[in-house]
Amino acid sequence: MTAPTTTVTELNAAQTAALIRKLTALADDEIILAHRDGEWTGHAPILEEDIALANIAQDELGHAGMYLELRRELDGSDPDRLAMFRDAAEYTNTRFVELPKGDWAYTMLRQFMYDAYEALWLEAAQQSTYAPLAEVAAKAVREEKFHVQHTALWVERLSLGTPESTQRTQTALADLWPHAAQLFQPLEGEDELVKAGIIPNIAGVRSRWEALMVKHLQDKCGLRMSREAFPGPARENHTEHLAPLLAEMQQVARQHPDAEVW
């Protein structure tokens, strides 16, 4: 493992701006996905899954908090202010995470695809030359590995369960696959960060992720996978589903803009 050497004082202005952009995008995906998962709490198909999915969602929120704390170190921004007082146009999450929760197959498959991506990204980010990122990646990757185990098993059970569950999982895959491409779309200035060893190369993460998807979804679960390459629009281009989500999520905070404590 490469010993992290770069420190915050060594980031130039362009790197700082690019890293802020990247950390925010990573956090936004976590916040929005955790919100969607949280919609199941109290409504899951079995009580054990009310527990498990709430646990996963709390981990994702924890990761959002970690990324936004790293951002705070760079620009002094307040994580809750960012979460609660930005509109849809300012959020940089992917469409993949903002789409409505769908049925249990959709939720589990999306979570599996996301967890696998996140685990691979974090695994590589442990080698970051930017020590604060390497540290949080090492902590978060352990949690993500548990998520992948849990969601991979669910996808397997549903794919190989009844004809209905197989069909639902196949439909979910067809819906989700084109949107997943957006997770791997490099952000402005990302290549500079990769060159400096600050963040992993997303193309490398993508190829490992695709190999894992083929192995699990196609080979193990028997699902049909699209071979088409999807471009993935820029992260500022949201579906119609994000604005109502934010309106609900931010309503209490925005009703009390002067509140200093919660």
Binding site: T41, A54, L68, A83, M249
Partner: peptide, 30 residues
């Protein structure tokens, strides 16, 4: 009992409160 409080998970005013409330409702399921 998960339901009346669970409705507010989606509206919690900070990330910390959202996490705590989710953990609480999760405990009720447990």
């Amino acid at each position: 009992g998960m339901l009346p409080e669970g409705e507010w998970i989606s509206k919690a005013p900070t990330l910390k409160r959202k996490t705590i409330l989710m953990a609480k409702v999760q405990d009720e399921a447990g």
